[in-house]
Amino acid sequence: MIIRKTESIIELFMKEGVMSTPVLETENLVKVYGRGPAAFHALKGLTFEIHRGESVAIVGKSGSGKSTLMHLLALLDEPTSGVVALDGKPVTKLKPKAVSGLRNATFGFVFQQFFLNPNQTVLENVTLPLKIAGISKSERNEHGMKALEQLEMADKAKNKATDLSGGQKQRVCIARALINNPEVIFADEPTGNLDSATSETVEDILFGLHRDHGITLVVVTHDEDLAAKCQRRLIMQDGHIVEEQTGASTTTPTAARVPAAPGERPQEQPSRRRRLMKFGKGGAR
């Protein structure tokens, strides 16, 4: 059993490098919280693809379903119905342990609140995913130092995580997300807790990784500056992707129609563009 799981993970790695294959695909993705009359339809049937090496922003107000979507894409949650496929393979049917293994091997996470363990050193925090993967300490530390060097944080390796500034913390988080050579980095409001100058630096780092290492970047944000730097933006509203924009700038958006859920046609309103503009800092959370 275990061997087969490992093989499937290796298989996934083998497929790497084929630019045209979507790394993540969804089909009619539905997520419902609760039951009966109290049921809340967070996602109402989403079908889209994220290609290898792409940078995608999921944009929307709080309650639009963007966080739920990210959780489903990152395999942190299971959809009520519909399919999430990683490298063309549906993961919905996999056992929780296999899904954990996939997350550990394939994804990197950057969170708004950093989630660094204050009792551990920077290096220990960075190497946590490798520790979970069961890699030996010396190898862990070697990789950890490399990742920290890449983010110019090597001199802080022995510091406690609490001794760092916000920007430094987020850089440590990025180092942690990088350490397992992920295919996809999920960034949930990565600049939400940072001032604008620091945000700029962190954004540069993230997009640099995307550009230089071909890492697929999925950013959840309501910061339009950050969203604008992504190649593609999925605008979410009430559980639908109401608009898809491509191009690295919002000034000349190329609106692409996304198939709506059957029997439900989202009203096409000219105000949609304005809505994007309204997604400012502090709009949620």
């Binding site: 929780p96 954990s100 997350r103 363990n117």
Partner: peptide, 16 residues
């Protein structure tokens, strides 16, 4: 709780 959440998000199985 958050630390547990993080470890699980980073791929630690429930068994571990």
């Amino acid at each position: 709780t958050r630390e547990i959440g993080l470890m699980k998000a980073l791929g630690m199985s429930s068994g571990k």
